[in-house]
């Protein structure tokens, strides 16, 4: 018996080691980057790029941070404004389509799914012209609007499914007790789908933080660029300072990595659902 459990433990350990090794190989590009970012310039340029860092330093991160801080702030603003607002207006539409019977309901549901099916690329030029006419090129407001709108199809889909899934008995008794439709929505229905709203918000956070194409199309002002587009500016400026660029890349990805590690299960489920719908 003792022998059996020892060999069982050994096998478990071997399996674990192999899994870790595979994971390490998969993330090797990331570790190579981290290794470079930790090297002081002296070590970086005198020795082979391939060697493992000997005297790790955070100086590259500090230098990169002072350069991309402003872009970081812009990305954070984009997320903080457009994600909650996008969830809110999506929940309004989702509630109407889940709770009321209206003419052409199925058509409307399909209409809102269109945005997930067709490539956003088709909209770039017309939206550029619209933004130009509205004087919203190169403004934060322009990006807020676009990020909000382009998250509507996904959020509405997720939230409508949630509203359909909860029992409407409480809402109906509240209506009988004299609450109006807005109170029923805001005080009863919305709080009940809050967990799903938060998960949708996480996915919107990822998509807004990671956006590149809207940023480069609608913003030219260096001071208003989000971190993805700002990073490319930073690369252009420091083509030779590889050790600083690598640190910049890692800093730009940090919020996403943290959010992902904290809410992995929800993010994976949500992404699979979104893709299966599209």
């Amino acid at each position: 018996m003792g022998n059996h459990s020892v060999s069982y433990n050994i096998r478990q350990t071997v399996v674990f080691a192999i899994a870790l090794l595979l994971a390490f190989i998969w993330l090797l590009p990331l570790f190579y980057l981290l290794n470079a970012a930790l090297k002081p310039a002296s070590e970086f340029y005198t020795r082979s790029f391939f060697t493992i860092v000997e005297a790790p330093t955070l100086i590259n991160f500090v230098d990169a941070w002072t350069k991309i801080r402003i872009y970081y702030l812009n990305s954070a603003l984009n997320v903080l404004v457009s994600v909650p607002f996008g969830i809110f207006i999506s929940s309004l539409g989702a509630y109407a389509l889940a709770r009321y019977s209206i003419k052409g309901q199925n058509l409307l549901v399909a209409y809102f799914l269109l945005g997930m099916l067709l490539p956003a690329h088709v909209t770039l030029l017309p939206n550029y012209l619209t933004m130009k006419n509205l004087g919203l090129l190169d403004t934060r407001l322009g990006l807020f609007i676009l990020y909000t709108v382009f998250n509507i199809p996904f959020c509405m889909y997720m939230l409508r499914a949630q509203f359909l899934g909860i029992d409407r008995g409480i809402e109906e008794s509240a209506l009988i007790d004299g609450a109006n439709s807005w109170q029923v929505y805001s005080r009863i229905a919305l709080p009940m789908v809050m967990p799903a709203a938060v998960i949708s918000g996480l996915l919107c956070f990822v998509s807004v933080w990671n956006d590149l194409v809207f940023a480069i199309t609608f913003v030219q002002d260096n001071m208003k660029l989000p971190v993805t587009a700002g990073l490319l500016q930073f690369v252009g400026e420091f083509t030779a300072s590889y050790e600083k660029i690598t640190a910049g890349v890692l800093i730009s990805a940090l919020p996403i990595i943290i959010v992902f590690l904290l809410f992995q299960k929800h993010i994976i489920t949500g992404m699979a659902e979104g893709a299966l719908k599209g």
Partner: peptide, 18 residues
């Protein structure tokens, strides 16, 4: 009324451009 805002925003910035 509930649909007004999402419908308008979505139509102006997503469907109309297409």
């Amino acid at each position: 009324l509930f649909l007004l805002l999402p419908f308008a925003a979505y139509t102006v910035f997503l469907v109309y451009p297409m």
